[in-house]
């Protein structure tokens, strides 16, 4: 009570009560159809399965999975195009050559990580883009591992 109406205490009026008699006349009247059974029962009735759920296929850790939308073409050679939706799983540990959503100095990007002789690179999948060398001065963080691309063909 206190939380919701913090100023209720200041209200001069005492609590007035009136009784609302029961009245059904203002209830909406919508006809309800019950399912009708007629004819022969389906022979498949006992074998009905639940539908396939695409989520089962692409989401392994629902609590840790996020969707992000792609804007740009630096990953085009691996089939990630502008407008695609990526499935990102934060529960996974990135390995060498994982495609990740990363943060560099406060900005998000999507790239392939590549480790070579102790040096970390973010590599684009498009010939027109140079690899980014991750140095110690950079504020670098991996946000999640990309597991699937949702790409519309129409």
């Amino acid at each position: 009570m206190i939380d919701l109406f913090p100023f209720l205490g200041r209200m001069p009026e005492g609590v007035k009560i009136w009784v609302v008699p029961y009245n059904d006349s203002n209830a909406l009247k919508i006809p309800l159809f019950e399912s009708v059974k007629a004819g022969f029962p389906s022979p498949a009735e006992d074998y009905l399965d639940a539908c396939l759920d695409l989520n089962d296929l692409v989401i392994k850790h629902p609590a840790a999975t996020f969707f992000v939308k792609v804007d740009g073409d630096s990953m085009i050679d691996v089939g990630i195009e502008s407008g695609d939706v990526l499935v990102v799983d934060r529960a996974l540990d990135p390995i060498n050559t994982s495609i990740v959503v990363a943060i560099i100095d406060g900005d998000f990007t999507v790239k392939r990580i590549h480790k070579d002789k102790g040096q970390l690179f973010l590599v684009a999948e498009n010939i027109g883009f140079d690899p980014i060398v991750i140095t110690e001065e950079m504020d670098f963080q991996i946000w999640g591992v990309v597991t699937f691309v949702v790409h519309s063909l129409r």
Partner: peptide
């Protein structure tokens, strides 16, 4: 400020 209570 005012409040009122209805009892069903």
């Amino acid at each position: 400020g005012k409040h009122i209570t209805a009892k069903f």
